[in-house]
């Protein structure tokens, strides 16, 4: 008889450590945030299962944003950086074999998106998206360029700090998370109404990647470390077995 504990439900989300849905300083949130409370319930198989992605779905340059847009023909303009870290769950367990996708502006602060009309020029050698799958210990890395800060229409003079958008799946659809990585020392973080939707300062600080000289490569790139924590699943001897699971 196996003594392995059964995987139980997802640990309920602590909404206090997340951004508030309604924040008048981030104007678009005003008409896009629900008025009524969320319906809370224990997770079910619909949230506990999740898609899995094989390495063969990915191209060799998918995690190299300096080269992936031109398929290796010419490098993007900008300050070369390595973004790396681990994906863990709330119980400290690594999340292996999970898909991480990132997107970002180019060195001038312009996105390659049909709706971005900022007059900073596009870089013909930069697409701005990348993806990878974590290894057995939950580690991942991207080679990219440092994105530029950019202005955006909100209050009269709002600017986004340098940031990289990050999307993670985890093993369960209920772990799904999109966040943003900021850079140590960026003075715009404290002026940003989107960063300020997070009211717990320690939680915002956890989105700021420190400069990591030990992983920087001399004469090549600087490194920034960004660890990501996803919801965990309870694991006890006392969870009810699901039929057909």
């Amino acid at each position: 008889m196996s003594k392995t504990p059964d995987l139980g439900p997802l640990i309920p989300r602590n909404r206090a450590i997340h951004p508030v849905p309604y924040d008048p300083d981030y104007k678009t949130s005003v008409a896009r945030s629900p008025n009524l409370p969320l319906l809370s319930m224990e997770s079910t198989p619909s949230e506990e299962h999740g898609p899995t992605f094989g390495h063969n779905a990915l191209g060799a340059l998918d995690n190299n944003l300096i080269l992936n847009w031109t398929r290796g023909a010419a490098p993007a303009v900008g300050e070369r950086i390595l973004m790396h870290g681990r994906v863990l769950d709330e119980l400290g367990r690594p999340v292996p074999e999970t898909l991480i996708e990132i997107w970002q502006a180019n060195a001038g602060g312009r996105y390659r998106h049909k709706k971005d009309t900022y007059f900073a020029p596009l870089d013909p050698n930069f697409g701005g998206c990348g993806r990878t799958i974590t290894d057995a210990e939950g580690r991942y890395q991207f080679l990219t360029i440092r994105p530029g800060a950019y202005p955006w229409p909100n209050r009269a003079n709002d600017w986004r700090p340098m940031h990289i958008h990050v999307s993670v799946f985890g093993r369960s659809f209920g772990q799904r998370l999109i966040t943003q990585m900021y850079f140590e020392g960026d003075p715009l973080i404290d002026h940003c109404p989107i960063a300020a939707t997070i009211k717990d300062r320690a939680q915002l600080d956890r989105l700021v990647a420190p400069l990591d000289m030990a992983h920087s490569r001399p004469l090549d790139f600087l490194a920034y470390k960004f660890d990501i924590v996803l919801r965990g699943r309870r694991q006890t001897m006392f969870e009810n077995k699901l039929e057909g699971m």
Binding site: H165, T179, T197, Q203, L204
Partner: peptide, 17 residues
């Protein structure tokens, strides 16, 4: 235990990623 990473908006350009 660790604390879950805070969410941030996907923004208007989520589709490029």
């Amino acid at each position: 235990n660790l604390i879950e990473t805070a969410s941030q908006t996907a923004g208007p350009y989520v589709h490029i990623g």
